[in-house]
Design a binder for these strands. Structure first.
Length: 456
DNA sequence: TCTGGGGTCCTAGGACCC
DNA sequence: TCTGGGGTCCTAGGACCC
């Protein structure tokens, strides 16, 4: 059931146009973004069912054109299913450099309206309009102009939502979009404002699943409690709810059910982690193949870290088996790394502690606990008496070389192995037998269990 | 129909410090 | 002999978002 609230229908009525204080938060969402970029770059695709995503047996749809959606194709749907629903579906692998380029242009247009905006992924933005109060900016007029510029300058369609907070702005932008009804495409209103007077009516008709943060698992828990609608949440005891969904989620849900959302528009959100995951078309068999894959993963992560001018103190690995169970391991170092040999060494030691009992369909390596690269050495020395440090770690500090010392890294790898006991060491031995020792990669680093620094 | 890859945040338990 | 409470950091796993 959908809320019986008209979209903002009076764009030409100044008396109904909200002020910045009535509609301070704006949310824009580009329509079918990846698929639309593909169609712009290849106009022969226009009017045809196009999806971007993984094409193989294990792929999913990342973005689907409205023509594809008429057949029921949706984001996150397995590609196998999508092709079944739409045999003529044109499945494209995705060109993220292009999407990033369009995304930058998108942000440039938003920037012209206000610098107070927060991107979410490549195709969405929240903006806080309050700094425009004194410029007499009217949110609806600004939204209409924004849509026009995005259409004219980028060739992309989008929907805009306006509301008192992020919760309502996002609900509104969703309502602004085109809709597929009985296989037919119905145009959306383009700009929707949830006026404060109508907030309660919007919430009244909304299923819990429509709220930010409520996915399949939480929705199932709520359903068991008889909580299917947002209005049900408004009457629930928060402490009781917390017993089922955790205290943070309970507080958030109860607040949302009353139309309250304290989330700010955060302008300079900096990444807190960065990683690379890959699902293999053919699952990997045994530790040797997994370790080999980890090398190239480490190189990807290292490049990304350097691209962001960061070093990471924490390296994590995640392995997903064919039975879809996952295991992760992580290690936090006393220093940051951004070097593929170092990341590979830590990752391999962590992988050595995982029992590879099934074929491996996914491997991920992630980096977090960032330091500014320029701070790495200083961070270590600040407040520390070098005399209290392990002499080998001290060697890192006194070296002004950006590269973490051989010895410090070897100690870190040893620490991983100590944490996980003999099994990890034994597994590392297997690595050597499989000829995958890390010293093969660069020649001067060797982190075998007992070899010390070998190398050529 | 059977689940990607980029991320964020939360939780619970344990270690450690004061 | 048996036992505090708060705070921080780390780890593993889970859920969610685009």
């Amino acid at each position: 059931m959908s809320p019986s609230v008209r979209p903002f229908a009076a764009l030409n009525s100044p008396s109904e146009a909200p002020s910045v204080d009535e509609a301070p938060i704006l949310h824009i969402d580009l329509d079918a973004f990846f698929a639309s970029v593909e169609i712009l770059d290849d106009p022969s695709l226009a009017g045809r069912p196009v999806a971007v995503g993984g094409g193989g047996d294990r792929g999913v749809v990342a973005s689907a054109s409205y023509e594809a959606r008429r057949f029921g194709v949706r984001s996150a749907m397995p590609s196998v299913v999508a092709r079944r629903l739409c045999p003529d579906l044109i499945m494209l692998p995705g060109r993220f450099d292009r999407y990033e380029a369009y995304s930058r242009e998108f942000h440039r247009v938003v920037q012209d309206l206000t610098p107070d905006f927060e991107p979410l992924g490549l195709d969405e933005v929240f903006a806080d309009l309050r700094s425009l109060r004194r410029l007499q900016v009217r949110p609806v007029a600004a939204s209409v102009a924004l849509r026009e510029r995005i259409t004219n300058e980028l060739g992309l369609q989008c929907g805009v939502g306006l509301g008192r907070n992020k919760l309502f702005a996002k609900l509104a932008s969703k309502r602004s979009k085109p809709l597929v009804v009985d296989g037919q495409l119905v145009a959306g209103p383009g700009v929707v404002w949830v006026s404060p007077a109508l907030e309660a009516r919007w919430l009244e008709e909304l299923p819990v699943r429509a709220l930010w943060g409520v996915g399949p698992a939480t929705a199932a828990k709520l359903e068991k409690l008889g909580l299917n609608w947002v209005r049900d949440l408004a009457r629930v005891d928060e402490a009781t709810l917390a017993g089922h969904v955790g205290s943070a989620m309970a507080a958030t849900l109860v607040a949302y059910s009353h139309g309250e959302d304290r989330r700010e528009v955060v302008v300079d959100r900096r990444a807190k982690s960065l990683g690379h995951d890959q699902t293999f078309a053919r699952s990997l068999q045994g530790l040797g193949e997994v370790v080999e894959a980890a090398r190239s993963h480490a190189a990807v992560v290292a490049r990304a870290l350097r691209g962001h001018d960061r070093v990471a103190r924490t390296i994590s690995v995640v392995v997903r088996f064919d039975d879809l169970t996952s295991v992760s391991r992580s290690q936090t170092l006393s220093f940051g790394v951004d070097d593929e040999v170092a990341i590979a060494a830590i990752a391999e030691a962590l992988l050595g502690s995982i029992e590879i009992h099934h074929a491996v369909r996914l491997l991920g390596i992630h980096a977090s606990s960032f330091l500014e690269r320029s701070q790495n050495q200083m961070q270590l020395t600040f407040g520390l008496d070098p005399a209290s440090l392990d002499p080998r770690e001290h060697a890192v500090l006194v070296s002004h070389d950006r590269q973490i010392s051989h010895e410090a890294l070897r100690d870190a790898v040893d620490e991983v192995r100590q944490r996980f006991g003999r099994a990890a060491v034994g597994t590392a031995g297997e690595l050597r037998e499989s000829g995958l020792d890390i010293e093969t990669q660069r020649g001067r680093h060797a982190f075998g269990p007992e070899t010390g620094h070998g190398g050529s």
